[in-house]
Design a protein around this nucleic acid. Structure first.
Lengths: 196, 196, 196, 196
DNA sequence: GATGAATGAGGATTCATTCAT
DNA sequence: AATGAATGAATCCTCATTCAT
């Protein structure tokens, strides 16, 4: 944990401020002056804690992502059944989107972003998709999920599906009616589109 | 169609160059000097055709998006069966991702981007999701798809699913093995995860 | 008479357009594009008639100034009495300000302007001040005007006085009520401030 | 008082440099690079203190104008007799022209300048003309000055007269022989042209 | 630890001018 | 005679970063 992460961890208010600004204005359009002013400190103070703008951005995002990771692991940990684990994962992702929409925006933006920071965010994504993938493979071995599905592709599909729906809802309706969204995603994921 | 769109339409080579640079370096890290040099024209020439950097970016993206729209509509138009339409849509999206990965990157990046251009891209997204949604509702009325599914949520899910998987593949394997991806997505979408 | 002056002389509409734009926006803030568009010709056409922007500006102003010169000489020519000549001069200046306010603005602006074109306008001014000065000296020799006044200083004073008042009126009241202004200026010039 | 005015006030040397450059080259032909170099600071430093070139220009001029205002008020304050006040005003204006010719040039140039800054300078002018006007009206009430003169027109006349003569002298003779100029202007203003 | 004035490299934009048609 | 697309030098302005206090 770097000096900067420490700074943000101790003062969660400043963390939220950083997330807010970066998520609403984007990395480049956010100036260090703005961040400093919003945090109520001098610009020099930020440079005392962070090597440069990039480190501030990365530390901020990293802290946000670690929250998502913890939420997801806790959700899975409370269940033994593969299907229930998937439901819990979906719930935790939606909850995260609800509580930390700013981080989620930053995260997705960078995932599809330019070369500069893509690798960093790709690694983070991989570990979540791997989390889903593990549950899927576990379920396939247990005979719960169709064995002929490619777990990697499905994990990626589910990941993209959830984030996209959640953001669609946030953008269109302003807020996330989680139950409706969750129910529909579960139905689609478990049973597919086709009428039986 | 603005003066700038005209310029890019007549010279598709320049359009591709703009897409390439913007998608690989991002809006802010791309300089007008670079674009001009890559296009083989003077900087002033770009400013003769586009009001500013933003207009160049938007015109470029708009042209790319219109290509996706045409591909999707053509794909749907060749089928009458709802299920086949969905397959065709998936195929056309994957094909687009393959041929115009740059545009796809820009598109997704901005969809989750900051306030400045989000509205513009949100509008574009809505029209595609609507395209999927229409097919879904048609299928539901015809009894092909489960009637209790919320078509809007499912359309958004499918949209996110396809793009995410496609980009995941492009990033992990460098290229898109479309058949494998398509088969798996179709299975997931039509039958769900559960073993019957 | 240069090629450009010819062009403006033949088409007085274009002359007025040039004066309007230059006077309201100033030399630097006026672009050749604007001039061309306002004149209803292509930019190249202007460069066909004028060597460059400076020549266009100078030709335009020169034409305007020659009008003032003609007006002043005609005014003086109609009188033999020195005092009446002064009145006629004042009238003609005010009339010019009224009819060609744009040119007047340009003229004064450049008179106090930067080095670039000052010499050109200073020469023009000198010739008018000289016109006044001649009338003053003539009047002094005839015993009409106080002999101990420095004619050069007085000529300059009268020149500045008239222009300033006229512009003051144009700016404050939107238009020039010439009679009131003329009467007061005449009184002041002929009798001074002091109550007799 | 803005941040920028403060900066110029504390360092009068830099103020003079700004005045010098702007007055000799004009607003548009003066580059920020030149100003920065002449002041011996980096370009960024100027932008740290002034929002943009326009603010630098306006702050510079404003400071200059406030000097003129102070000089004029002090001059008037030392006298009770209306006629002596007028003489003192003329003296103070000529002194200002002598010491701050650069500001005077800028001032007059903008007074007759384009739309952009005219309002700003017009306001400043109004207050000086008002100063003169007040003295004139006071004198008229006291019976010292002719009661049938329009004080507003006369104030404007006197204002324009002084500036024009002063500049005429500066331009023609390179320097201002104040006594000669003052004497002549006083004679003209108080007694008029006519031989009694 | 904290500050904020100063820096200067970097990049967007403007616009007078040219020239092939 | 007239055109207008193309040019690129010139300039304004931004902002991450430094450092003396």
């Amino acid at each position: 944990m770097s000096k900067g992460t420490d700074f943000l961890n101790k003062d969660r208010e400043k963390f939220k401020i950083a997330v807010d600004i970066f998520s609403s204005k984007g990395y480049h359009s956010t100036t260090m002056d703005e961040v400093a002013q919003a945090m109520g400190v001098a610009k020099g103070t930020i440079y005392y804690h962070f090597k440069n703008k990039d480190e501030l951005y990365l530390c901020t995002t990293q802290l946000g992502i670690s929250i998502l990771e913890i939420m997801a692991r806790e959700a899975i940990g409370q269940h033994t059944d593969s299907r229930e684990k998937i439901v819990a994962l979906i719930e935790s992702y939606l909850l995260f989107m609800h509580d930390y929409a700013g981080i989620a925006y930053i995260f997705l933006r960078e995932l599809f972003g330019d070369h500069n920071r893509r690798d960093f965010f790709r690694e983070a994504t991989k570990s979540y998709q791997k989390l889903i993938q593990n549950v899927l493979e576990e379920g396939q071995r247990a005979g719960a999920f169709a064995g002929d599905l490619n777990a990697e592709i499905c994990a990626s599909s589910i990941f993209g599906m959830i984030f996209t729906v959640a953001i669609h809802y946030l953008q269109v309706y302003g807020e996330l009616s989680m139950d409706v969204v969750k129910d529909n995603i579960c139905k689609l994921i478990f049973h597919g589109l086709l009428e039986v």
